[in-house]
């Protein structure tokens, strides 16, 4: 029996197809988010990957900013609960999740059952989110996926003190022209994102184990900076970007189970 979780963000769409509430039968990530055909594409891809058919799916839960606009869902849940659930499935010991996505950053406090007990999210500002990294990568004429390798080479990260993305942009440009080495600059940019998200984490309270999820977690530069900033080890899974979709697919499984027990 299949259930589907679809996480429709501002810049990406992600799907997880779950078999019997336990096994991940397929996953997909498409770099197009809400308001595009990204969600449909992601759905098509995940079905292909699993060799399944749309009608095999018993229940669909949508999450993420585009959750309400997706027509094919049976239910929707916030990405907050879904991320918590997804992370708990992969790392049952995690009590704090730091999730940095395209346009928001959130920190979730989990109990031992993986249920979200509290959360904090970024304010309206883009600092400390994936968008900040994108803008900075753009200035440096780099692909966002290259930032990590560059940051690794740094011995002395530059300090980017402006929180405002526009101010930070000019700070980076002036550091570039002053001759700051590229690795130091990139490491400084990663650090700036980590510092912002760490402040959010402290608001919720950092309890170990700590895990990073969301697209930005793929960047080891940010993860390393976060470990330094919080003084804790940061767990990370290759599925970081898929935790929301995974959680949604698990909630979809619960819904099927609840439906069945209420029928019996």
């Amino acid at each position: 029996m299949y259930t589907l979780g679809i996480d429709i963000g501002s810049a990406t769409s992600k799907c997880i197809l779950l078999r019997d509430g336990k096994k991940i039968a397929g996953s997909s990530v498409v770099a197009a988010g809400t308001g595009t055909d990204g969600p449909e594409q992601a759905l098509k891809m995940v079905l292909e990957a699993a060799g399944a058919d749309r009608k095999d799916i018993l229940y669909v839960i949508a999450t993420g900013y585009g959750r309400k606009k997706f027509q094919g869902a049976d239910g929707e849940m916030s990405e907050l609960s879904c991320h918590a659930r997804g992370v708990h499935f992969v790392f049952p010991d995690v009590r704090t999740v730091i999730d940095i996505g395209g346009q928001d950053a959130k920190v979730l406090a989990l109990n031992e059952k993986g249920r979200m007990m509290n959360f904090a999210m970024n304010d309206k500002c883009a600092a400390g989110t994936g968008r900040f990294l994108e803008v900075m990568a753009g200035i440096l004429k780099m692909d966002i996926s290259e930032l990590e390798r560059e940051a690794e080479k740094s011995a002395d990260p530059a300090s980017i003190s402006s929180t405002c993305t526009v101010f930070a942009e000019s700070e980076v440009i002036s550091q570039l022209s002053a001759g700051t080495a590229l690795p130091d600059l990139v490491a400084g940019i990663c650090q700036s994102v980590a510092v912002r998200a760490a402040a959010l984490a402290r608001r919720v309270g950092v309890r170990e184990a700590v895990c990073m999820s969301g697209g930005v977690a793929k960047n080891a530069g940010v993860r390393t900076a976060m470990e330094k900033e919080l003084g804790v080890k940061i767990l990370f899974s290759d599925m970081a970007q898929l935790m929301g979709a995974l959680g949604a697919s698990l909630y979809a499984y619960d819904a099927v189970r609840d439906r069945e027990t209420s029928v019996q």
Partner: peptide
Amino acid sequence: DTRVQGLMEI
């Protein structure tokens, strides 16, 4: 909306 929904889910 996301924050209110998160609060509700808790």
